[in-house]
Amino acid sequence: MPQDVLFSIPFEAPISPYLDQARSRHLDWIRDRGLIRTEAGMREYLAWDFPEAVGRTYPHASADDQYLLMNWFSLAFLVDDDCDTGRDDADPDPDSSTSTSTSTSTSTSTSIGTGTTSRPGTPQRPDRVAEITRELITIPFREPGTPPDLVAPITLAWSEVWASMSEGTSVTWQDRFAANWARFLAAHASELRMGGSRTVPDLDAYRVMRRNTAGIPHSLDAIERSRRFEVPPQIHAHPLMRRLREAATDTIAYINDIQSPGRRGRRVASHNLVAVLRDRLDCSYDVALREATRMTYEQLDTFMTLQAYMPQICGELGLGSTERIAVEMSVEGMRDWIRGYYDWGLLSGPYAAPDRAPDEAVHGYAEESTNPAGGHLRTRTA
């Protein structure tokens, strides 16, 4: 089973000391805003424990910012249900063509704030999803605090959250975040239009598509908001920084693709690396899994190599000490995201293996062995 693959990630990540406090406030906010309106939906949401994902991926945020980021983080996942139309929860076969995006949502589409309610596995109306998606894309491009044109619990919630997230940030940061947020949401609209298509893209097309559906670029932008700093524009424009962010994005997305098959039902196969490799290489599931694991380590190694060059780039660009510290915090935040997301994925309800000890799930370093694909992994034994 794919959840048996444990990666050896050569750095640790802290957990926010404000996690429990912020989680309690966040859950009250979810209920008060009507984003989840049934007990079944709330149980499902609690099982995923998205607040812990925030506490692990943004561990340096203040108590108030932890709460704000949890509210924002939940919207990216809750809206995902509206685009999740091709699912068959009765098919648990990990050897079938399965897929889950990094911004994977709860498996029950129960009144998530779009103004609609559906049974598990029931597709949402495409026109309603398109309306909601367009409004969510548009909100950051308006003056913060502007009421949404399309009124629904999730659009009202996002308007509120964006007003707080954008406060004190530059227009440059707002535009960058908004553009990446728009690409993420537009990718889900495209996914919906694909519907029941079984077409599998080539690997290059998959990479481009997955970087958008993963929802990582705007999440990396939020690192700056989480600690109240901004990376200089000339660094963001530098090819090395762009490639560093791509390597972090690919590492996180590939890990998610490896963790997720078999835990949920059928979805668009083109958004899962293992499924793409299996189709394109015309190989078995195990061979595709080993190649996906090798590719993940390749991206992680690229990230580790490129981050070491960032001080040199800062020097070449003549950055001052404050700007250099901002770059260092940005790179540290990417490490936190890679490791924090990985640890959350092992511990959260949808991905956690039931017989894995907590310490083993979090660290996963003991008893390492070189795997046939290259790099190191651990395989759980029965």
Rank of each mutant, 00 (worst) to 15 (best):
T38H: 07
D93F: 11
I255E: 14
E291S: 06
I252K: 00
R225V: 00
S99T: 00
A152D: 08
A366K: 10
P354S: 10
T98W: 13
E167T: 03
F303A: 05
F141E: 12
L300Y: 11
Y206W: 12
Y365K: 07
M70F: 02
T108V: 15
R198Y: 00
A63M: 07
I235P: 00
C314V: 03
Y342G: 03
A253I: 12
L347W: 00
T251A: 13
D221R: 11
Y254F: 15
L347C: 05
V129N: 07
S197E: 09
A178E: 05
G374I: 01
E44G: 08
D202H: 08
T57G: 15
I338R: 08
L240T: 15
A275Q: 05
D20S: 14
F77P: 00
A186F: 03
T100C: 06
G86L: 02
R245T: 14
T381D: 04
T38M: 08
D84C: 08
F50V: 03
A269P: 07
W344L: 07
E12K: 13
R43N: 11
A214E: 12
M209V: 01
R335I: 01
A308V: 09
T106S: 13
G86Y: 01
D80E: 13
T57K: 07
E52N: 08
L78R: 10
T102F: 12
R33V: 00
D279G: 00
A179L: 08
A353M: 07
G168W: 10
D80V: 10
D279W: 02
D95H: 15
R37V: 00
S107P: 02
E328S: 15
L220H: 13
D81W: 01
W158H: 12
W158S: 09
E135G: 04
P233G: 06
S97I: 01
L75R: 05
T98N: 14
E360S: 12
A130I: 08
S118A: 07
Y341F: 12
N371A: 13
D4K: 10
R242H: 05
A189E: 15
P350D: 12
T38V: 02
D28E: 11
F50C: 04
R23E: 05
T302L: 10
S24Q: 14
L35H: 06
G55N: 09
S8D: 14
W158Q: 14
W162C: 02
G320W: 01
S170Y: 04
P59F: 01
D282M: 05
S103Y: 03
Y285Q: 11
L317D: 01
